[in-house]
Simulated scan of single mutants.
Amino acid sequence: MTTRWLSPEEQRAWRAYIASVALVEDALDRQLQQEAGMPHLYYSILATLSETPERKLRMTDLAEELKITRSRLTYAVTRLEKDGLVGREDCRWDKRGSIATLTEDGMRVLERTAPGHVETVRALLFDRLTPEQVGQLEEIFTAVSEGFQGEDARPTAEDVPWRRRSGKSCS
């Protein structure tokens, strides 16, 4: 098999992508640590739960929505549960599963933190782009994401984080 090396243009695009993702994630983590005492992932869990009916979601579905492993989600939800921001309940239709629930305290933290978070996202990303570039950004990353999930892709358990097995039981 011959290696298909990146062209100079692809290499520049790749490195720009890696640098920007690292810088944006770091800035979001710092902002959320200062304002809410939590990393971006924890905020994303609260935000995702706030957008679901009854503010509840099955843990496996939450992991898929956030594009993370079930074990990483379990760890984060356990921490949020200790802080009183998220609760967990047994899944009625699947005895092995559980459901994460956003608590009232979690909703208050989210409501207090969301304005600063949105301003940070806007300043870091959207204020630097034209409306046309925003559309292109969505188109590009939708294509990348769908490459992992589309019918033609046939992803294996190793291809998508939420399907990976860990040594622990799945939630």
Rank of each mutant, 00 (worst) to 15 (best):
A63C: 01
H117Y: 06
L102G: 05
K95P: 10
R92C: 05
F126W: 14
E64I: 03
D105P: 08
L102A: 09
G84V: 00
R128A: 12
T78V: 06
L125Y: 10
A63Q: 09
R92N: 07
L125T: 10
E65A: 12
G84I: 00
C91T: 15
T103L: 13
T69F: 10
V109F: 05
H117E: 13
V86Y: 01
H117R: 13
L102S: 10
G116A: 15
G106M: 08
A114S: 15
E119H: 10
K95L: 10
E65Q: 01
D83H: 04
Y75R: 13
L62T: 04
E111P: 00
L110C: 07
L125E: 07
T120F: 03
D127H: 13
A123W: 04
T120A: 04
A114D: 12
R128N: 11
D83F: 02
I99F: 06
T101L: 01
R112C: 11
A76P: 08
R128S: 06
E111V: 03
E81D: 10
E65W: 03
L102I: 07
R88V: 06
E111S: 07
G97I: 10
F126T: 15
R96S: 03
A76N: 12
S98W: 04
L110Q: 08
R122W: 09
G116P: 14
E64M: 06
T74V: 13
D83N: 03
R70Y: 08
E119F: 08
R79M: 04
E104C: 04
R92G: 08
L124N: 03
R108S: 07
R122F: 02
E104P: 02
T74L: 11
R112L: 07
R128Q: 10
T69E: 14
E111M: 06
R128P: 07
G116N: 13
W93C: 06
L85P: 00
R108C: 05
A114T: 15
K67A: 15
S71N: 11
W93P: 02
D127R: 15
A100T: 00
L66M: 12
K82I: 00
L110Y: 03
K82F: 01
G97W: 01
L85V: 03
V118T: 14
I99C: 05
A63H: 09
L62E: 00
L73S: 12
V109A: 14
L124W: 05
V121H: 14
G116S: 14
T113A: 13
A114H: 15
L125D: 08
R72D: 01
E111G: 06
T78G: 13
D105T: 09
D94R: 10
T113Q: 11
E89C: 01
E119V: 09
E65T: 04
E111N: 01
L85Y: 01
V77P: 01
D127I: 02
T101D: 00
A63S: 09
T69G: 12
D127N: 13
L62W: 05
T78Y: 07
A100W: 00
F126R: 14
G87E: 06
F126L: 15
E64P: 09
T69M: 14
L66H: 14
H117L: 07
T101I: 06
L66N: 14
T103H: 10
K82N: 05
T113N: 12
V118C: 10
R70T: 09
G87R: 04
Y75P: 02
V77F: 02
